[in-house]
Amino acid sequence: MGGSRTLQDQRHGQRAWLSYTLPSDKLRLAWIEVEHLDRRGRIGPVRAGRASTDVRAGIAFRF
């Protein structure tokens, strides 16, 4: 086998969230979260990449 291959894998991510206690007897907590992920890789001359963004939200109730 001759030559060496370049291998590379990079991951980067960011996440932000916000939560709030609501001034109500029944609702306890509301929250929202945004997450963004980037991934890139390389093996020799072949390159690939992917990016994704997810948004999540919720409300907690008191019974």
Rank of each mutant, 00 (worst) to 15 (best):
M1R: 11
M1Y: 08
M1W: 08
G2S: 11
G2A: 09
G2I: 06
R5K: 10
T6Q: 11
L7Y: 14
L7A: 13
Q8T: 06
D9Y: 10
Q10K: 13
Q10L: 14
R11Y: 14
H12A: 10
G13S: 12
A16C: 04
W17R: 15
L18A: 11
L18C: 09
T21V: 14
L22I: 11
L22D: 02
D25V: 06
D25S: 10
L27K: 05
R28N: 12
R28M: 02
L29W: 05
A30E: 01
A30V: 09
I32M: 11
E33P: 00
E33A: 06
E33D: 13
V34E: 05
V34L: 11
V34M: 06
E35I: 03
H36D: 11
L37P: 00
L37E: 07
R39N: 07
R39E: 05
R40Q: 12
R42D: 03
R42T: 03
I43K: 07
I43H: 05
P45A: 09
R47S: 14
R47I: 06
R47T: 14
A48E: 13
A48S: 12
G49C: 03
R50V: 08
A51H: 12
A51V: 01
A51D: 14
A51S: 15
S52I: 05
T53I: 01
T53E: 13
T53F: 07
D54A: 13
V55S: 08
V55F: 14
R56P: 01
R56H: 12
A57G: 13
A57I: 01
I59W: 06
I59K: 02
I59F: 05
I59R: 03
A60S: 11
F61I: 07
R62S: 15
F63A: 02
F63N: 06
